[in-house]
Amino acid sequence: MTAQTFYNPASIAELLDVLDKFKEKVVIVNGGTDVVERLQTGRVAPPPDAIMYIRNVAELDYIREENGHVAVGGITSYAEMLSSPLCRQFGGLMQALAEIGSPPIRTIATPAGNIGTAAPAADCNAALMALGASVVLASKTGERALSFEELFSGPQKTCLRRDELIREIRIPVNKTATSAFIKLAKRKAQDIAQVSACVCLEAEGDVCKNVVVSLGAVAPVTVRARSMEALIVNKTVDDAVAAVRGFVPSEASLRSPRNKAYKEAVIGVIVGRAIKKAHAETAGRK
């Protein structure tokens, strides 16, 4: 517990001033469900001089549809997304959100916080990657957008600069695609994924036309499994499910001998289930 100063900004401008002043010496507390525990156990590096609590920045709390995407503000919680009619169109996202923690965690935890934490098994990050989401980063020098594929650089590491804030998450609206999320975990409640997959699918009848596959907990970062997508495109759902079964995508990078064989064996099964589930939604839509 080394932090000496506490900031409680009320506006983005004020927030960015503090970030600019302290850079790596300030730790941002959003929902706090990960970072507060790490603060208590001295696992925030480098030890921060200041803590900045950002949940009173009301202008970061929104979900709205604009310019072909749904925009989710930087302090918007999972619970707000789960009850948002705008988010309901993203089946895979809703399924992932429902798997996160428990209701009291979802009340306060945020997708932006989870992106900052960059856990390789994070449920929401896998869903957002499959849906083609991007994040808008703000700093005193301006804004830039990063796709989910560009975002993560290692376990608990992102490409964010230390003066940058995750201001907004943008999820493109795609009326012709459906998505599904499947999580394999030991317990039903409050567990961390052993393998998770999100599939975003555009199908013509039973044939998979466009597909994005993202995987959680199979590499140091959430990954997009293009090698698997190539096996799925232009196949019928049944053929695609058969093709991915037992396939270990080159994007997976499993090193722990404790679970490598098991995870490699189940990746294809989980992706297959997600393909079927996403396709069932396509059928349901017609």
Binding site: F6, N8, G32, E37, Y53, R55, T107, I108
Partner: peptide, 29 residues
Amino acid sequence: CGTGDCGACTVLVDGEALRSCILLTASMQ
């Protein structure tokens, strides 16, 4: 647990059930 998983530290904050072991008191203004 101290990690927000077990629920023993639950309190109501403005009517919402939250985990007091992962809330900063300084944010309770």
